[in-house]
Design a protein around this nucleic acid. Sequence first.
DNA 1: ACTTTATGTCAGCCTTGTTGACATTCCAAG
DNA 2: CTTGGAATGTCAACAAGGCTGACATAAAGT
Lengths: 167, 167
Amino acid sequence: MSDGGRQSSGEDLLFLTDDQLRKGIEAMFFAYRGFTADPDRILADKGYGRAHHRAIHFINRAPGTTVNNLLSILGVTKQSLNRVLRTLIEDGLVESRVGSRDKRERHLFLTEDGAALERELSTAQRERMRGAFRQAGPAAVSGFKQVLEAMMDAEMRRHYTRLKEHG
Amino acid sequence: MSDGGRQSSGEDLLFLTDDQLRKGIEAMFFAYRGFTADPDRILADKGYGRAHHRAIHFINRAPGTTVNNLLSILGVTKQSLNRVLRTLIEDGLVESRVGSRDKRERHLFLTEDGAALERELSTAQRERMRGAFRQAGPAAVSGFKQVLEAMMDAEMRRHYTRLKEHG
DNA sequence: ACTTTATGTCAGCCTTGTTGACATTCCAAG
DNA sequence: CTTGGAATGTCAACAAGGCTGACATAAAGT
């Protein structure tokens, strides 16, 4: 087995023991369920799933984004995304405009209805996050974000930081 | 819209602005992908999925647990869990023993092979977590756990804290 | 003209969630 | 003791949403 769990090196490394890491892993698992629970409930009522939420979220964040860009943010195949986008367009929540510069591209926008659903979902999710942040306090929130950022793959961190500095 | 985004109340509430919450939400989304990436790769090779990982993890954490208990931890239907357990049992990674007291119950254990896969998966996931923890430092890790715990539903927090204090 | 890029679509597969129906076992009330 | 309900777990069938592969179209780039 790995020697990663050793607890003495002269420095203060108690937070890197296997047991501490295990707690972090389980915290992440249980917390993610809470994180998605509220939007999931709203979506289930309307016959959508988490995939629709993700598409709506990032179209809202970067209106006019192309399918390809969305693909790279979401990390799914175009077939998979296309199925979701098709239903959102059919239902009038998303509008797809042919690019003016490059007519191969489709630029995606939320319609009024789409924006309304986005607000409903993000408000629910934000309230959960707000409760957790308030309870934990500003210092904890800062640590929370540091650890999460360090946990991302390089490409995801790229997307994250780009969106972070306003998109 | 909610007034949650206001930034002034006399106190230091800048960390609760809608924009800060949005960053937290996106951090959670991107980080969770990194969190599951390494085990997912290992599992795909062996023809298993994330659901198998979850079952293996919690059986390892609480050997002899019943199906019902596992159900409540995982938050899925018994039918869904059953399918996963069946393949794990068929493949000789998990052993299911009929309860001695109550013969309706099945008590679950990892076999040698099951324990070996568990180690492979948890080592990979722990290394990712270790890298993130090390990079962020002990204070950040403490905040990370505080926020995650505050984000859980009550029932999940029950499971989490029970497991936390060694199980 | 030819190739590459961006997108969409069809078909088919897998995992993993769901509900419904059913078997077994336990326990408690009559 | 029996019987009916509750708890536990299994089997079957369906849906969402991942995936791959093949192919069509249109626009750009060379």
